[in-house]
Write a protein that binds this DNA or RNA. Structure first.
Lengths: 237, 237
DNA sequence: TCGAACACGTGAAAC
DNA sequence: TGTTTCACGTGTTCG
């Protein structure tokens, strides 16, 4: 039932007889723990019993510790959908990689969410995003943040058409009477170089100026359009 | 320089002398590996040397393995910004929890992204989202997916105004000539009950039908507006 | 036979 | 004090 008890008795005797250094199986390099060495006597059994019990407690505690660690390792194998026979080291390496990936991912997403929400100040940015050299296109990412108005998106489209740019992707978020649009546009290389970034920037600036003009007209006593009034309903959450 | 070599010689002798069971310090429960037991002779040193070399290789390999594992554990301590004295077990438990959290988080985000992207089929959904009982408002989340047209958002605002609903938050994504709008709107409780969900649904339906009508008019030879043509530039990435 | 990976029991140190 | 955690060297198994 307890195959290790006899071995431990045996080991205990060995340890008492000072065989194999400090009592450790192999290496040791220990200095202390020279046992009292009561070779035979009545007190010996008591001391041996105490030591034996301590040793067994220690052994079982260590076993429980190993079980705890391995249990968590198995959980990690599950969440990473790893084979149950993947190395501990390999598994941990994958875990490190996965955690880093997930952290980076959520960081990027939260950042992109932040940039997508409208801010309180007017903003224009046009970035050179990349080239599709094979089909002769330059990609820009344009971002525009300003007061909301109903004709903003159509005006934006007109601008892009006049510049012979194609809209690959468009997102618009409206919040609290403000709006932010992010557009990914492709410009024809035969028509534009990278410097056409400035064309787009100037066009967006004129768009902002037009918005300001409209707002001033409206605020100077002119009747506000139904659309504008509808947009006024947008309030902060 | 090699403090363990003497111990290993010692152990080797012990093992050769069959002390402590199968050669393991404690437990064993082994069956095989009863060594040839050439107590003394010329062949003994060769066998001992071989065994010694094997044992040393084994020991060093095991040390390298431990170093690999602990190295990865330390990396995990860094990415989790844990104290360097956190338990292996506790650390691994935290890692499991963190990975699960991050997976859930990215899942939720990607799901919300999915619902935000336009689909190929027209869709309307209005959900009762919650109540702000203290200020007498019911919150709805309305989602609309259809072909893109420039007057969609203003029309939407008109509908909400006619229903005396306030837009708390509006998002619109346009992609490939399709658009999806998600609106969070607040309805006055004194004016509407929860059943006003149907008002909103019907209004959105009429919006969709109006879009279809416009499209049919356009496709039946009528001149397409500049805006519509501008929107045609939106292509899939 | 050899190497890689694991569980085990131990000594030592921290608290 | 005893309890807990770690590193170590070992025996064992698998490819």
């Amino acid at each position: 039932m307890q195959p290790e008890s006899s071995d431990q008795m045996l080991y205990s005797f060995l340890s008492g007889n000072q065989i194999s250094g400090g009592g450790l199986c192999g290496s040791s390099s220990s200095t202390s723990s020279y046992y009292p060495l009561a070779i035979s006597g009545i007190g010996e059994t008591m001391a041996q019993d105490r030591a034996l019990a301590a040793l067994r407690n220690h052994k079982e505690a260590e076993r429980r510790r190993r079980e705890r660690i391995n249990s968590h390792l198995n959980k990690l194998r599950n969440v990473l959908s790893c084979n149950s026979k993947t190395d501990k080291a390999t598994l941990l390496a994958k875990v490190v990689q996965r955690v880093k990936e997930l952290k980076q991912q959520t960081l990027e997403i939260s950042e992109s969410d932040q940039t997508l929400l409208p801010s309180e100040t007017d903003e224009i940015s046009v970035l050179h995003y990349g080239d599709y050299s094979n089909d002769g296109h330059i990609i820009f990412k344009a971002s525009l943040c300003c007061d909301d108005r109903s004709d903003l998106l159509p005006d934006l489209m007109e601008i892009l058409k006049s510049l012979h740019m194609k809209t690959l992707r468009a997102e618009m978020v409206t919040l609290g009477g403000r709006t932010r649009s992010v557009l990914v546009v492709a410009a024809d290389k035969e028509m534009h170089g990278v410097e056409s970034v400035h064309f787009l920037q100037n066009a967006l600036k004129s768009l902002l100026e037009r918005s300001s003009k409209l707002l001033m007209e409206r605020s100077s006593g002119g009747e506000r359009s139904k659309r504008r009034r509808a947009l006024d309903q947008i309030i902060m959450v």
